[in-house]
Nucleic acid binder design. Sequence first.
DNA 1: CTACATTAGTTGTCGCGACATATATTTGCG
DNA 2: CGCAAATATATGTCGCGACAACTAATGTAG
Lengths: 152, 152
Amino acid sequence: MFNLNEEIKQTEFINKRQELAVNILHTASWYKSVNSVFFKPYDLTPNQFNVLRILRGQKLKPCSLQMVSERMVDKNSNTGRIIDRLLDKGLVNRCENKSDRRQVDLTISQKGLNILSEIDDNMPKMSSIMDNLNDEEVNTLNHLLNKLKNKK
Amino acid sequence: MFNLNEEIKQTEFINKRQELAVNILHTASWYKSVNSVFFKPYDLTPNQFNVLRILRGQKLKPCSLQMVSERMVDKNSNTGRIIDRLLDKGLVNRCENKSDRRQVDLTISQKGLNILSEIDDNMPKMSSIMDNLNDEEVNTLNHLLNKLKNKK
DNA sequence: CTACATTAGTTGTCGCGACATATATTTGCG
DNA sequence: CGCAAATATATGTCGCGACAACTAATGTAG
């Protein structure tokens, strides 16, 4: 049997946590949307940009699909089909790996490199999204989000 | 011209914020996935559940598509097609509004109500996702996420 | 060496967010 | 009243996450 105070406490407890759930979803969706707008002029989605940057990071060395997937911000994503779109636009190259014919060798094309360097120039505008939090607040947020996820 | 210390500070600044961006995306994706798993046994997606709960909240009064969309956790979402799927499963009813023939009257069906009450019974399991944060931490998170988004 | 398991990728399906366009109905202005 | 703007919804396209099924190539145990 609950008394009234207990019930109110319980309700508040649940409400604050529901608010947090909604808040997290909203924040992610807000961030994604700001991101999408930033990349739109380059006709890239954030995921496509992510793949290009990973390939550039490998310099000359070709990368397998596997390797790209593991480095993606969003794992479990259909990296294969994201690369299909980059292929269509001529921003990456794909060819069969000589030593293991199951694998594909992925590299970024010159055209892809050109787009990335254009983007680099405007990156600072993007980074300023989070200017309204100070260093301590950023650290606190990181810490609490980690704590939230590392349940058990 | 930067000196080395300035550059390091700058890099740390950007890295912490990039980490936060990734962290927010991961947290949202983690929460969505826990949520999806919870609703899977009822053959509902979180969005479909959200629509059903909104309709139940209206009790007997029919709700227009507009009204449902506004109350959704995720606005801008294609509520019409989410409702199509609920219609297919017989969980909602849709009919033309008498006084304004552009509008549709949406109500939850008995079958829909039954599923919701099943879910109600197991809700506490769901709420426990956030047990590893205490009240103060939940409040801090809510506050910081709001501050982050309310840029300008 | 053969049979089977494992691995790398491809392809298909569903649900959905974002966005653009289309259509019907109502409203409101002259 | 008549016609244009506003409103409510429907429909189509793209990109993508989650997931399942499939194919081809390689590794491995007997």
